[in-house]
Each structure stands twice: as C-alpha cells, then as structure tokens.
Simulated assay, not measured.
Amino acid sequence: MNTQIYLRPLELKDADVSYKWRNDPEIWSYTKFVLQQPITPEVEKQWLLNKLNQANEKRFAICVKNTNEYIGNIQLLDIENEKAEFHLFIGEKKYWGKGIGYAASLMLLKYAFYNLNLKYVFLEVHAENLAAYSIYRKVGFEQVSQEHDFIKMVINSSVLLAIN
C-alpha cells in the first residue's frame, strides 16, 4: 500500500464532502442504504449533527496522510455489552483497491479492542461484495451466518491480537 492514511473523528464540515458520496449509487450498491431522494449538504449536515453526539457510536473520517484528503468513513455503532457493529466505506473511488480499507480496518479494530475494551465486533457484508469480504477475512473476521444476500461476520479481540 503506497497511500498512508490516518483516522480522525468525523466533523460537521465533512458533510460538505460526504453528501456527494451519499448520492452515488455505485458506492451503496452492496449496502442496505437506499437513496429515497437526493441528499443536499444541508440534509447531510443535519444527519451528521444528529449522529456525532451519540454516546454509543464512534465515527471516524479516513484521511490521506500527505494531503489530509477526507476519503471515507469507518465506524463502530451500537456499542454496548463489550461489542459493536463495524461499518466501512471509501467514498473517493480513486482510492478503491489500494489497501486503504484493510489499513483503516486494522486501525479501528485496534481502537475498539485496546481503547474501548470491546470483546467482539461484528458486521454484515453483501455476499457479492468480494472486495470488502476479502478485507474482512484478511483482518480476521469469521463468517458466522448468512441471511439472504448478507453475510454476518465476527471478530473477537484475541483474533486481532494473534494476527498483529
């Protein structure tokens, strides 16, 4: 991977970029998100404002180190009872296939297990999203079930510690 990244907490100003991603059907083709109407910067800011103060969520921007460009989001949602739900997307398509999803996943999982002391992190991935599935397997997620088009995967803290 040539592109080095860092994670930072999402900020309200990120809505000026992320609203464009939310209007791109290719980005959401393998998710449960369905665009009902175009997302404006104002709608995105209001949505983000509501999300940033949730005590049981940790939302981060994925940024390129040498340019500080904001290129995607990674988050832990529904944090409770030592577990959380994992979400990742790279909104800037020129960065797809560059190893960024893998690097960002490792960073967030280390944060989840070392800083938040979580025991389990789970996710759902569309069965046809082979790139994401590959990332999750490489990081250490294991498939536990499949319902319709979505595969549920889980990683526990001891798995990540063994890999890294």
Rank of each mutant, 00 (worst) to 15 (best):
P41V: 07
P41S: 01
V43Q: 10
V43K: 15
V43S: 10
E44K: 13
E44S: 11
K45M: 10
K45A: 04
K45V: 04
Q46I: 00
Q46S: 00
Q46G: 03
W47V: 08
N50C: 09
N50H: 13
N50F: 10
K51F: 01
K51V: 01
K51Q: 10
Q54K: 15
A55N: 09
A55K: 13
E57V: 02
E57K: 13
E57S: 12
E57D: 07
K58Q: 11
K58R: 14
R59K: 08
F60D: 05
A61K: 02
A61T: 07
A61V: 01
I62S: 05
I62N: 04
C63S: 12
C63N: 05
C63K: 09
C63H: 07
K65H: 06
K65C: 05
N66T: 06
N66A: 04
N66G: 00
G72N: 03
N73T: 14
I74C: 11
I74D: 08
Q75A: 15
Q75T: 12
Q75G: 15
L76K: 02
L77V: 09
D78Y: 07
D78R: 11
I79L: 06
I79Y: 04
E80F: 02
N81L: 09
N81S: 08
N81V: 02
N81T: 04
E82D: 06
E82R: 12
K83F: 03
A84P: 00
E85K: 13
E85C: 11
E85I: 08
E85S: 13
E85T: 12
E85F: 07
F86Q: 13
F86C: 15
F86M: 13
H87Q: 14
H87A: 15
H87N: 15
L88F: 04
L88H: 07
F89R: 10
F89N: 15
F89Y: 15
I90V: 11
I90K: 02
I90E: 02
I90Y: 03
G91Y: 08
E92P: 00
K93H: 08
K94G: 02
Y95V: 03
W96V: 03
W96M: 05
G97N: 13
K98I: 01
G99S: 15
G101Q: 07
Y102A: 07
Y102G: 03
A103L: 06
A103P: 00
A103K: 11
A104D: 03
A104H: 01
S105T: 13
L106G: 06
L106E: 10
L106S: 06
L106H: 11
L106W: 04
M107I: 12
L108A: 08
L109K: 10
